[in-house]
Structure formats: C-alpha cells, structure tokens
Nucleic acid binder design. Structure first.
Lengths: 94, 94
DNA sequence: ACAAATGTTATCATATACGATAATATTTGT
DNA sequence: ACAAATATTATCGTATATGATAACATTTGT
C-alpha cells in the first residue's frame, strides 16, 4: 500500500457508504420529494411555519419537524398539510 | 304531518347524514383512492394477500387490515406495499 | 448591530400504526 | 356439496407519530 496513498479498503468503505446512502435515499424518495413540494408551496405562498401550523391545527415546531423529514409521516397528516396550503394531494402508482 | 308520510325531520336527518358522509369521504379520499389502486394492481397481478404480505415482510392479516382502509397508514408502509407489487408511488400536490 | 420574526431542537405524554397469532368467514375450483 | 384457498376480524404487545411547551438558533428588515 502506498505510504501517503489512499487504501483500497478505504475506497471500498467509502463506496459502500455511498451505496448505502443511495439505497437509503431511494427508499425515502417519496417522503423527501413530497416534503420538497410542500416546502416549495409554502414558500411560494409566503406562509410561515407558524401560519401553516395554525391552519393545520398544530404547533410550528411540529411543522418544522415534519419538514425536516425526520420521521415516517402519515397519509392523513400530509393531506391536512397540503390542503391547508390550498392544494390537493394526488397519489398514483406506476 | 302525513300519517304514513316521511317526516321533514327525518329527511333533514338523512340529508345531514349524507353531508357528513360526503365530508368524511372527501377527507379520506386520498387514502381510499390509493388503496383502490393497490387492490386493483394486486388483482391484476393475481397475487394473494398472503403473497403480498410475504413480499412486504408482514402477515396477510395486516394486508387485509390495510386494504380495508380502517386506519391512517404511513407513507413508508404504502411505499413498501406498492414496491412489492413491482410499482412505484408518485405523489404530487395540485 | 439590533430587535423581531422565523425556524429548530429537545422533551414528555398520549394515541395509534403495525407486527404477530389465532380463530372465523368467504370465495373458488372440482 | 365439499375441500382448499383466500380473506377478514379480534386481540395483544411494542414502537413511534403527533400534540404540546419551552428554550435556543438563524434569518430578516431597518
């Protein structure tokens, strides 16, 4: 192994991490893409998390948590949020 | 009030029920429509709930419960189900 | 640079989604 | 009509989504 060089094992590990990351991201894609759309819409409308929270009937901290994508949200919750932005949610398969 | 007739109050009550029902259905539309698509896809593929359960990694009873629309399902769970049917889920707003 | 507005993070309590199993009901094919 | 396959329902345990509050961080406008 070269003295100052990069070790194969390291590259392998790095690539592995990439694969893991990609796989994880792929799994969570629907969640992230939905959230991205919602944040976009909220910004377009110039609505604060606080205002959205008010409309949804929750707290701004919960909206922040939701937008962070930190957990596996429910259909009802996203539906309430989307509608509180004056939009409708459409779900299709394939 | 006519002897054998329908009382206004009854009609009112009935209509009320209809309105309630419609409102409730409207609220749950995304859930029901998604489930309908999933059941459809499963039938098209001639896959039993048991087989789907196997692919998803759960029990057939849980698939049945899911397809009944009895509860507020999560994004991850529907995503797993859809993908186990060899499809992808697409969610858009407006 | 400051104050006000907006967003984030941590934490606790409660409700409920989902896993699992078993018993029952319904549908299907012969 | 029957047996086998498929679907449904009830129930319990566990994990976690969501509500709520409060303290902290970041961004924005002046």
């Amino acid at each position: 192994m070269s003295k100052a060089g990069v070790k194969f094992k390291d590259i392998e590990t790095r690539l592995m991490k990439d694969e893991e990351f990609k796989a994880e991201f792929e799994k969570l894609k629907p969640r992230y893409e939905l959230i991205a759309q919602i944040i976009d819409a909220r910004n377009q409308l110039n609505i604060t998390q606080e205002e959205l929270a008010l409309r949804v009937g929750t707290q701004k901290s919960n909206i922040s948590r939701f937008e962070s994508g930190a957990y596996n949200t429910s259909l009802d919750f996203v539906t309430k949020i989307v509608r509180s932005l004056g939009k409708e949610i459409h779900i299709t398969i394939n």
